[in-house]
Amino acid sequence: MNRQTFAFALAGSLATAMATATAAPLPAEKMVGMEKCYGIALKGQNDCAAGAGTTCAGTSTMDYQGNAWKAVPKGTCTTMNVDGHMGMLEPAKG
């Protein structure tokens, strides 16, 4: 395919996709409605999104610094099978 034909094909492909997109029976107000038919939308928890704030508060919660700890897998990794691997964590020193 020469350069011109290639460019022409791109424009054609885009025109077709846009025609399909506009023809699709999506509510008109859904400008981002394309996500309905493109990719898998994952649902997150927006309200928890701010992340940690900066604060001037102290804490009486103790961080047990320097204590060695044994990591026994207590997380959800132990109930997940990812590509045939069950979660395994090694003990670490803090």
């Binding site: 604060t55 001037c56 508060a57 102290g58 804490t59 009486s60």
Partner: peptide, 21 residues
């Protein structure tokens, strides 16, 4: 105004923590 937490220091004396919690 805020709420403090309370603990003791190395000598067992009352130690208040500015915890805002």
């Amino acid at each position: 105004l805020a709420g403090y937490d309370e603990t003791v220091d190395g000598a067992g004396e009352r130690l208040l923590i500015d915890a805002h919690g």
